Amino acid sequence: MKMFVNPSEVFLHRDFVDFRKAINGLAALVEDELNRDAYTGALFVFCNKAKDKLKILYWDKTGFALWQKRLEKQKFKWPSKINETEFVLSAEQLDWLLSGYDVLGHQELHYQSMI
């Protein structure tokens, strides 16, 4: 993932999130449910129930930034069978997740052109 910041840590929130939540709602979730400081510069990754959208929240020392990614046809390989409410990802695992791979099993998504 090409970013303007170099995150210290990446946390994946295991449970699905209502994607009507924006920056304030997600920052509150980070602090209330994950018991984490949202102002550390760490990335916090969230997924919707349909598993076709991700949101990434982080503090960049001047304010919060919120990124969103939508998969066109497939679903994100979300590690939902973890007992913890959060999962720590490496930078490489985050790249895998954003590229459509299973962060635990590395299964690639396949697309073909309609042209």
Rank of each mutant, 00 (worst) to 15 (best):
M1F: 10
K2P: 07
K2E: 14
M3W: 13
V5K: 09
N6Q: 14
P7N: 10
P7F: 01
P7H: 03
S8M: 12
E9L: 10
E9C: 03
E9W: 07
V10T: 08
V10S: 00
L12I: 06
L12F: 10
H13V: 15
H13F: 15
R14N: 14
R14K: 15
R14F: 02
F16Q: 12
V17H: 02
V17M: 05
V17C: 11
D18N: 14
R20V: 06
R20L: 07
K21T: 08
K21Q: 15
K21Y: 10
K21S: 12
K21I: 07
A22D: 11
A22I: 02
A22C: 08
A22M: 12
I23Y: 06
I23E: 14
N24L: 05
N24C: 08
L26Y: 03
L26N: 04
A27F: 00
A28W: 11
A28T: 15
L29K: 08
L29Y: 06
V30S: 05
V30P: 02
E31I: 01
D32R: 11
D32Y: 09
N35K: 15
N35A: 14
N35F: 04
D37E: 05
Y39V: 03
Y39W: 09
L43N: 01
F44E: 00
F44T: 04
V45Y: 01
C47I: 08
C47Q: 11
N48C: 01
N48T: 04
K49S: 13
A50Y: 09
D52P: 05
K53R: 15
L54V: 12
K55Q: 04
I56H: 03
L57Q: 07
Y58I: 00
Y58K: 03
W59D: 08
D60G: 06
K61S: 13
T62M: 12
T62V: 12
T62D: 14
G63P: 05
F64S: 01
W67H: 12
W67D: 06
W67Q: 10
Q68N: 10
Q68F: 05
K69N: 05
K69E: 08
R70F: 06
R70N: 07
L71I: 04
E72D: 14
Q74I: 01
Q74F: 03
K75C: 13
K75S: 15
F76W: 08
K77G: 03
W78Y: 13
W78I: 10
W78M: 05
P79T: 06
P79D: 07
S80P: 02
K81D: 14
I82K: 03
E84G: 09
E84A: 13
E86F: 13
E86M: 09
E86C: 10
V88K: 11
V88S: 04
V88W: 00
L89R: 04
A91I: 10
E92G: 09
Q93T: 00
L94D: 00
D95M: 11
D95Q: 15
D95E: 15
L97C: 08
L97Q: 07
L97Y: 09
L98W: 02
S99F: 04
G100M: 07
Y101R: 12
Y101K: 12
D102H: 06
L104H: 02
L104A: 04
G105S: 12
E108D: 08
E108C: 01
H110Y: 09
H110A: 13
H110L: 12
Y111R: 10
M114I: 11
I115A: 13
